[in-house]
């Protein structure tokens, strides 16, 4: 079986990339193949990166409060591209009241400040499956 392929993306205007980079390294050290898109990606760019890279997982890092706009748009785009089975996880500063809505639209894992890197690795290993290309 091939390694899990993870696209780590930083959508929105925010440039604070410490979290995205730390997680990218942790997933790589845990044996996954990690593609980091860089900063300020639109949902369209993230969806096409997932398609091109044949991603099994998309990890979003959002700290700015724009998640209620970005996540729904990304999920719609993934559906329209037939990428419904890509596991989408989100890390960042997410007010508690927004979490049920995000889960409802299909963001499977939401990781708040202080989450151990190992928890995220374990969650991805338990919930992602390598897609057959």
């Amino acid at each position: 079986m091939r390694k899990l392929r993870v696209v780590i993306a930083k959508p929105g205007l925010d440039g604070h990339d410490r979290g995205a980079k730390v997680i990218a390294r942790a997933l790589r050290d845990a044996g996954m193949e990690v593609i980091y898109t860089g900063l300020r990606q639109t949902p369209e760019q993230i969806a096409s990166a997932a398609l091109q890279e044949d991603a099994d997982v998309i990890g979003l890092s959002i700290l700015s409060g724009a998640h209620n706009h970005i996540a729904p748009r990304l999920m719609d785009l993934l559906r329209s591209k037939g990428l419904d089975d890509v596991l989408v996880v989100l890390g960042g500063i997410i007010p508690g009241v927004d979490i049920p809505k995000l889960k409802e639209i299909g963001v499977k894992g939401i990781f708040l400040p202080g989450t151990p890197m190992q928890d995220i690795v374990d969650f991805i290993n338990a919930n992602a499956r390598t897609r057959v290309a």
Partner: peptide, 10 residues
């Protein structure tokens, strides 16, 4: 377009 969801947030 890129300001979507970001106005007045931070």
């Amino acid at each position: 377009e890129l300001s979507l969801g970001e106005v007045g947030k931070c």
